[in-house]
Design a protein around this nucleic acid. Structure first.
Lengths: 124, 124
DNA sequence: TTGACATATTCCCACATGGGAATATGATCA
DNA sequence: TGATCATATTCCCATGTGGGAATATGTCAA
């Protein structure tokens, strides 16, 4: 059995670094294919193929407008990946909690990017 | 250029479902190879090969003891993956933040034990 | 030492891959 | 209509792949 197809699931789709780059670039703001190619230094067919894979697992959404095709990251599709990582988060979340608590005690300081998760407290 | 090697980085290593299964199984508690094979229904050479990949990217740690080799997940190696997902988390974290804030406002209540599996319900 | 056990490695192979290049499809404009 | 722009698809190919089977390495027990 060879390696699973890139369109099998989100895990396989994001294994490719260029596709991760595309997802970050398309984060929140939709862009036409040409812009992606320019911004990431790829040629157009490569971008189209990568987008095809990402679309296959729901990681991007498409909007057609005339001869342009706008793509945009669908962050919802990344949730399973995020939640899978949370399985292990408790091992390192203690630090984050500490950082967060310090930041909250001193508002005005640079806050952490975000902190939505309470940690589980460990079974060592 | 073919697909990047599985040992290129954590993203490629965890693309394989069996390897994710192994990481979950080895979470926190070390196990010999035979136990992994039994638990996941794989044959021993397959497990050894998967472990070799995981070791190649630092996702498991090894301890030898006689003829046994104990493996254990190294969750620290998953942090880059976790943090990459955080890039997009803001789109779905609003729910979690709201839950957390409510819990913090009522400290006598039972705090949420853990927030790893928020409900799946629709995005508004 | 020999034999049993635990793990790692090697060999084989069908197969999906990503890049390059060329081409096809589709939409707009003159 | 034809020409041009934007994107998608096809063809080719070197390469890493995961599984199975067989074998090698290493360790303990008698």
């Amino acid at each position: 059995m060879p390696r699973a197809a890139t369109t099998t699931d989100v895990f396989n789709a994001i294994a490719e670094a260029r596709r991760r780059d595309i997802l970050v670039f398309l984060d929140a703001r939709e862009r036409p294919v040409g812009d992606i190619a320019d911004a990431l230094g790829l040629n157009q067919p490569s971008v189209s193929k990568h987008l095809s894979v990402l679309r296959g697992v729901g990681l991007v959404e498409v909007r057609r407008e005339g001869r342009h095709v706008f793509y945009r990251t669908n962050p919802e599709a990344l949730r399973p990946l995020h939640e899978w990582t949370l399985t292990f988060e408790r091992y390192w979340s203690r630090q984050l909690v500490r950082i967060k608590e310090r930041a909250e005690r001193r508002p005005g300081q640079s806050a952490p990017a975000h902190q939505s998760k309470p940690h589980k407290g460990g079974k060592p």
